[in-house]
């Protein structure tokens, strides 16, 4: 059983990372479900969420707030609200006017938005990576570390916080989508936008809210990453975005539980790949999975097959 402690540690790390990817992936999957496009700027919205949380953390430091739950709550609220504003604005400026135009136009506009956001943050916040002091240190020592000097399995408090927040948010979110009128309107728009609008669903508002919700979850992910890794830069959304999208595709694009499942799988794969093969190629592993899934199971694990209407 020598391998077990090391394995367990990777499992813990993978689940933590996977929670983050899962939260971002939900934004991709919801937007894809409702308007059928990949929101390339979503990764950058996550990056902005991380920056907003980081700034709030600094403000707390400057104001002398030191009670950790208060700091966490402030970071959460502020970064969610401010990032949701970005999500709304991106949709309003770059996507809404293009609804119903050619297939390529919103995609290019999304790429443009992504480039725009990255460079905007680079200009206003500087190009250097921002190191953040960890807020929550320490953790449980699950195994090892005794007299025999065996491998130490650590379960950090921060990791617990991340997984807990993710589970709570996911539960709340699933309930919200399942039981509220917004959820119903979303599903109606997914099925048939024109018909939904004829039946009095405010399609514009529903789509905007979808972006807002996606951005809010991405902001939470950004906040957690800020606290966990503590190294934010303007380009962090790029690779994270691709991986979260991979997660959404792996889980079945359009499916919310799928996004979460895909996120966790991608997190695990990345953790294990880094641990057992090579850390340098961990991003390559994620992209390869994306390609493999698209080839062999384009509907993902939990997705429904698309029937082409001719």
């Amino acid at each position: 059983m020598d391998w077990f402690p090391y394995f367990l540690q990777q499992l813990i790390n993978g689940l933590t990372l996977g929670s983050v990817y899962g939260l971002i992936a939900i934004g991709y999957t919801m937007v894809y479900g409702i308007i059928g496009m990949v929101n390339f700027a979503h990764g950058d919205v996550y990056m902005i969420g991380a920056f907003q949380a980081m700034i709030m953390l600094l403000i707390c430091g400057a104001l002398g707030i030191s009670w950790v739950p208060a700091i966490l709550l402030l970071m959460l609220i502020v970064s969610v609200v401010l990032t949701a504003a970005y999500g709304w604005t991106v949709e309003r400026i770059a996507y809404r006017p293009l609804r119903g135009s050619s297939r390529l136009a919103p995609l290019i506009s999304a790429i443009g938005m992504s480039v725009l956001l990255e460079n905007y943050v680079q200009l206003v916040q500087g190009p250097r990576p921002k190191p953040v002091e960890p807020l929550i240190r320490g953790g449980f020592q699950l195994m090892g570390g005794g007299a025999d000097n065996s491998f130490v399995v650590q379960l950090g408090y921060m990791q617990i916080v991340i997984v807990m927040i993710t589970i709570i948010l996911m539960g709340a979110f699933a309930m919200a989508i399942g039981n509220t009128s917004l959820g119903r309107q979303q599903r109606a728009c997914e099925q048939d936008m024109k018909m939904a609008s004829l039946l009095g669903v405010n399609v514009d508002r529903t789509i905007s809210l979808t972006f807002v919700l996606g951005a809010a979850l991405a902001a939470v992910a950004g906040m957690m990453v800020t606290l966990y890794y503590g190294n934010n830069d303007f380009f962090m959304g790029f690779v994270a975005g691709i991986k979260a999208f991979t997660a959404a595709v792996l889980g079945g694009i359009g499916s919310l539980p799928g996004a979460m499942l895909g996120g966790i799988l991608i997190g695990l794969i990345e953790a294990f790949w880094s641990a057992y093969f090579s850390a340098e190629y961990k991003d390559v592993a994620a992209f390869s999975i994306l390609v493999l899934v698209l080839i062999f199971r384009p509907t993902g694990l939990l997705g429904r097959p698309e029937v082409e209407k001719v």
Binding site: L98, A105, P106, I108, S109, M113, V115, L116, E118
Partner: peptide, 18 residues
């Protein structure tokens, strides 16, 4: 500001003259 302009260009062109 080059890349900022590129991003803006892509969005604006799609909106105004796709």
């Amino acid at each position: 500001y080059r890349m900022l302009f590129y991003g803006m260009c892509m969005v604006l062109i799609m909106l105004l003259r796709p």
